[in-house]
């Protein structure tokens, strides 16, 4: 089997320091107001019975990416290794991909005026380095690598740990695997948000 990049995020180790978010911004010159990767932090329950959850998010480099399917000019494309990228010279900025991604992973870069999202730090990975967020993670919660390589950390974690992905019901087959994720953190609590649950 060929190379297939994926990310495993061990939420038991994540302390919510947001270092990954900051590293991503500085590595990729991400303008203010938009993010390629971010950390959601939430509390569920009622005092004294509460729990705190963190959920680093990024583009899931899905196996069947909605963003790629809807792009009318094929500016969004996928490499053999699974990385989903945007051709910034071709993108017309129609924003269809932003509307279609189930994970809010995309935005229009206000300086470049094209769609943009996490690239798994493609240039770094090509040069044999880790993505900036993985490199900077203070607890080693973020693990990046080849899902198909039996010697990779990602392979081992996927084989030995129970993992969950966000919104598995979409046909996207997202490739960010969370260890120790709470179902309530993996998706928005819509009923509460629309006021249907007090």
């Amino acid at each position: 089997m060929g190379k297939r990049y994926a990310m495993v995020i061990d939420l038991r180790k994540c302390v919510g320091c947001h270092a990954c978010q900051v590293a991503c911004k500085s590595e990729n010159n991400v303008p203010l107001g938009v993010n390629r990767s971010w950390v959601e932090e939430l509390e569920t329950g009622k005092f004294p019975n509460v729990s705190r959850h963190r959920l680093p998010r990024l583009c899931n480099h899905c196996e069947n990416p909605s963003c790629l399917n809807v792009c009318p000019v094929k500016a969004t494309y996928q490499l053999e290794d699974g990385t989903v990228l945007v051709d910034y010279d071709r993108c017309i900025g129609c924003k269809y991909c932003i509307a279609a991604c189930p994970y809010d992973a995309r935005f229009i870069n206000p300086e470049r005026n094209t769609a943009e999202k996490c690239t798994y730090c493609h240039e770094r990975v090509e040069a044999g380095m880790q993505p900036a967020c993985v490199n900077t993670c203070i607890t080693g919660a973020r693990v990046f690598g080849d899902r198909n390589d039996p010697n990779s950390e990602v392979f081992k974690l996927l084989a030995t740990q129970s993992v969950a992905v966000s919104k598995p019901e979409t046909n996207n087959r997202p490739q960010t695997y969370y260890i120790g994720a709470d179902e309530k953190a993996l998706r928005p609590n819509l009923l509460e948000i629309v006021g249907g649950e007090k």
Binding site: V39, L42, E43
Partner: peptide, 8 residues
């Protein structure tokens, strides 16, 4: 179950 986001 109530959910409160601190960071988003």
């Amino acid at each position: 179950m109530p959910t409160v986001h601190f960071f988003d």
